[in-house]
Simulated scan of single mutants.
Amino acid sequence: MQEEAVLAEFRASKALLEGHFLLSSGRHSAHYLQCARVLMNPERAGRLATALAAKLPHDIRRKVNKVVSPAMGGVVIGQEMGRALQVDAMFVERPEGTFELRRGFSLEQGDMVLMVEDVVTTGKSSREAIKAIEAAGGKVVAAAALVDRSGGTVDLGVPFTALVELNFPTYAADELPAELADMPAIKPGSRAQP
């Protein structure tokens, strides 16, 4: 799936928003990708996951026997990636502020895990999810996301594949351009802001 086709999926679902947004990373942006909207249609979610699975290196696809994603944003794409790769999918969540497996989910020592996110900007939640997966006995062999907003700079400590790389600029609070500084920031994500 080419970048323009992926963006068409986001536009068709009204998931590409413009304004002033405070991202879960703590950075500000004039663009926000509401992946929950693009993934709310099961056929679209399946198409995107199948395209992302096809982008994974062949040796990674062969190794993976579990998919784990961080809640909330990664739950749907993680489930669809499990379907695309024909492996079980589960998620980590933060009941007390730190990711952990719950709800009867568990990993066996040495499970080969693909950690799947919806969007990666700084990689903070991805690294936290990877740490929780490893603490639970899994070996994270790679990470994947629908969208890489890092400009290709994110380092998760494992091979990383994104369906599309979007380079919408992000800003620290003290470096906002005038057009963003003049409007209130909206916090559209599911996670409490820092």
Rank of each mutant, 00 (worst) to 15 (best):
residue 193 Q to I: 09
residue 122 T to K: 05
residue 33 L to I: 08
residue 26 G to A: 08
residue 129 A to H: 02
residue 181 A to I: 00
residue 87 V to Q: 02
residue 94 R to Y: 11
residue 154 V to P: 12
residue 68 V to M: 09
residue 139 K to I: 04
residue 159 P to N: 02
residue 38 V to C: 08
residue 171 Y to H: 13
residue 9 E to A: 15
residue 51 A to T: 01
residue 64 V to S: 01
residue 39 L to A: 00
residue 82 G to K: 02
residue 134 E to R: 07
residue 89 A to D: 07
residue 127 R to I: 03
residue 76 V to A: 04
residue 76 V to T: 05
residue 139 K to M: 08
residue 172 A to Q: 05
residue 58 H to N: 02
residue 27 R to V: 06
residue 173 A to T: 00
residue 105 F to N: 07
residue 126 S to M: 13
residue 122 T to P: 04
residue 52 L to S: 00
residue 46 G to T: 00
residue 106 S to F: 09
residue 13 S to D: 08
residue 126 S to G: 05
residue 159 P to E: 02
residue 43 E to S: 09
residue 52 L to Q: 01
residue 17 L to V: 05
residue 83 R to C: 06
residue 61 R to F: 07
residue 16 L to R: 14
residue 46 G to L: 11
residue 181 A to Q: 09
residue 94 R to M: 12
residue 105 F to T: 01
residue 15 A to F: 10
residue 152 G to S: 05
residue 14 K to G: 15
residue 139 K to H: 11
residue 40 M to C: 12
residue 113 V to E: 09
residue 21 F to I: 07
residue 58 H to V: 11
residue 139 K to C: 02
residue 44 R to E: 00
residue 33 L to G: 01
residue 71 A to Q: 10
residue 153 T to P: 02
residue 137 G to Y: 04
residue 1 M to A: 14
residue 119 V to K: 03
residue 168 F to P: 08
residue 104 G to R: 01
residue 73 G to V: 06
residue 80 E to Y: 13
residue 20 H to D: 00
residue 127 R to D: 10
residue 148 D to M: 14
residue 45 A to T: 03
residue 152 G to I: 01
residue 163 L to C: 11
residue 65 N to R: 03
residue 95 P to N: 12
residue 120 V to E: 08
residue 189 G to R: 09
residue 43 E to M: 14
residue 35 C to V: 00
residue 59 D to G: 10
residue 34 Q to I: 07
residue 73 G to Y: 06
residue 14 K to T: 14
residue 28 H to E: 07
residue 184 P to V: 00
residue 78 G to R: 12
residue 2 Q to V: 12
residue 58 H to K: 13
residue 126 S to F: 03
residue 99 F to K: 06
residue 67 V to G: 10
residue 183 M to H: 15
residue 145 A to S: 15
residue 75 V to P: 09
residue 125 S to P: 05
residue 182 D to V: 11
residue 38 V to A: 05
residue 58 H to F: 10
residue 54 A to N: 07
residue 113 V to W: 02
residue 143 A to I: 01
residue 164 V to T: 13
residue 166 L to Y: 14
residue 84 A to P: 01
residue 173 A to V: 02
residue 166 L to W: 14
residue 3 E to F: 13
residue 89 A to P: 04
residue 26 G to F: 07
residue 44 R to Q: 08
residue 169 P to T: 11
residue 94 R to L: 12
residue 87 V to K: 01
residue 127 R to K: 12
residue 3 E to R: 14
residue 105 F to G: 08
residue 117 E to D: 13
residue 144 A to M: 14
residue 114 L to F: 08
residue 22 L to I: 02
residue 61 R to Y: 04
residue 118 D to C: 04
residue 84 A to F: 00
residue 119 V to H: 07
residue 79 Q to V: 06
residue 146 L to N: 06
residue 66 K to Y: 08
residue 85 L to V: 02
residue 120 V to P: 10
residue 119 V to P: 00
residue 157 G to A: 08
residue 132 A to R: 06
residue 153 T to M: 04
residue 48 L to P: 07
residue 189 G to T: 11
residue 93 E to F: 12
residue 159 P to M: 08
residue 193 Q to N: 15
residue 22 L to W: 13
residue 179 E to G: 00
residue 6 V to Q: 08
residue 17 L to A: 04
